[in-house]
Amino acid sequence: MKKKTRSFFNWILLAGSTIIVCLFLGIILFDIFSKGLSSITWNFISALPSDGMTKGGIFPAIIGTILLTFITTLFAVPFGVACAVYLNEYARPSVLTNIIRASIRNLAGIPSIIYGLFGLALFVQAFKLGTSVLSAGLTLGLLSLPYIITTTEEALKRIPNSMREATLALGATQFETIKDVVLPKALPGILTGVILTLSRAAGETAPILFTGVAFYINGLSTSINQEFMALPYHLYMLSTQHQSIEQVRPLAYGTASVLILLVFMFNIIAFYIRFKHRSQD
């Protein structure tokens, strides 16, 4: 009987924690959507801002965030995955690889504002890319790299060696083994890491602050060497820096809702890709 009570108590503890976490998530989502959904109209997501941000929409910020995330992906995913493949598949374990791994984990802990400063020094000034969506995307890419490398390496580690031996014993080279068996098998794990990282990067404000984001741009920026608007920064400005904060509050909540929905969409796409991949093997 005592054992039963204890296991019930454990269950309550675990289930309770889960419920509390979900509850907070629910409250946050409810708060944002209840105040924000009413401002989301077709006009809100398709029009340019007007009248000093008090009217109009957030179209340039949506496009800015999508373009920014795209550049981040293009830069961080190939380099991150390649680096993880090297560390896990090619590099022989040594003091040096351990130092590299420790450094990568430390990089993941650096505050994002420092990446912003670094991006300003490196991309904006040294590389002369100017304050632009390209500089900001590359900066966010740097921020994302440690996470992508770490999660990809974890995904690669989960592939049993017997899978690698199967193709190697057939006379496949190590590269063929990685390309044809290891990476396809690890893809769901890699994708999960990539999407979580990019969702986080899409919502970052600090790294893009110095490197290219603008509060307001007249018209739509279409070139990657121009400044741009982005949802998180727009939200930050509307909720703290605007001269008539009370008036634009619904717009701020609307922006927050759009950002959440956008990230949600990323995740649905990733879920779909994972699902398609699972059903294949």
Binding site: S162, E165, T167, A169, V181
Partner: peptide, 10 residues
Amino acid sequence: MVFQKPNPLP
């Protein structure tokens, strides 16, 4: 080579 545990390719 054939291994101890069947290891078909995915």
